[in-house]
């Protein structure tokens, strides 16, 4: 197994686990509220997969850190500045179309990253990715189909999906921005060089969006600061007050 700085490895694992945790929680906010029963069930199942994946990523992160923190400790006892998810996943659900656009943009990236991570030089990471990728194939199939269905749907649904794409597209770039942690992971063969995944992502996403009769907005501006923890959007803190409510109100509660 390749040698790598353990603090950087911890950081990388938190990024993977925080992406799935924050998106999993966001998606779970739909439980009981989705437009039709089938979509409610699909959203709940997607959230469940993501939270399950979080347990594996943050569980391993806690082991690597070596301070005795469990996946639950990392999820429930850190504050907003310690989260390492990309800004895209913490954005509010909006309407159903906006939720599905966010899901599709993340799923397409997630699938590409997990496929590469399944070949990681780190056996533990490869095992988690090989497990998760099977679930994510279903996620992206559904989110892509839904984006097409709504984008190429009625004038109302089309207009809402275009609005969602305009809002969320500037968050895509952050998923491919690299820093010292990514470089160290790529060098050790632990994770792919994210930049090399962009072309295939653009082809995949571009194809679905064209079929959905949607137009990618102009401009190269990218919101960033989530995965480095530099600056989250105001939405994450509000989300954590819900997600971590029990541990905040009753510290140390177990059942």
């Amino acid at each position: 197994m390749a040698q790598v700085d353990q603090a950087q490895l911890f950081e990388f694992l938190c990024r993977m686990g925080d992406n799935t945790l924050v998106l999993g929680h966001r998606v779970s906010e739909w439980c009981g509220l989705a437009p039709v029963l089938e979509e409610d069930i699909a959203l709940a199942n997607t959230a469940l997969d993501l939270i399950g994946q979080t347990q594996m990523w943050l569980g391993l992160a806690g082991e690597v850190e070596g301070k005795g923190r469990s996946a639950d400790d990392l999820a429930m006892l850190r504050d907003v500045w310690d989260f390492r998810n990309v800004l895209l996943v913490e954005q509010p659900n909006g309407d159903f179309g906006q939720t599905m656009m966010r899901q599709f943009l993340f799923d397409a990236w997630h699938l590409a990253v997990l496929t590469a991570l399944a070949e990681s030089s780190n056996d533990r990471i490869a095992a988690i990715a090989a497990k998760a990728v099977k679930e994510v194939q279903y996620h992206v199939e559904r989110s892509g189909d839904t984006v097409i269905g709504l984008g190429d749907g009625t004038s109302e649904s089309h207009q809402r999906m275009q609005k969602a794409l305009n809002l969320l597209w500037p968050y895509v770039g952050e998923m491919f921005v690299t820093d010292a942690v990514d470089d160290a992971m790529a060098k050790a063969g632990i994770a792919p060089d994210l930049a090399t995944l962009r072309a295939a992502f653009d082809t995949h996403v571009g194809g679905i969006l064209t079929e959905a009769t949607l137009t990618i907005p102009d401009g190269k501006f990218t919101h960033k600061g989530g995965k480095t923890g530099f600056q989250h959007s105001e939405h994450l803190g509000h989300m954590l007050t819900q997600m971590q409510w029990l541990q905040r109100a009753y510290p140390g509660a177990t059942w």
Binding site: E38, A42, T46, E135, R142
Partner: peptide, 13 residues
């Protein structure tokens, strides 16, 4: 097919 997802994670409708 109605949905890729069902009453448990392992099933579709």
């Amino acid at each position: 097919r109605i949905s890729q997802f069902g009453s448990t994670p392992c099933k579709a409708q």
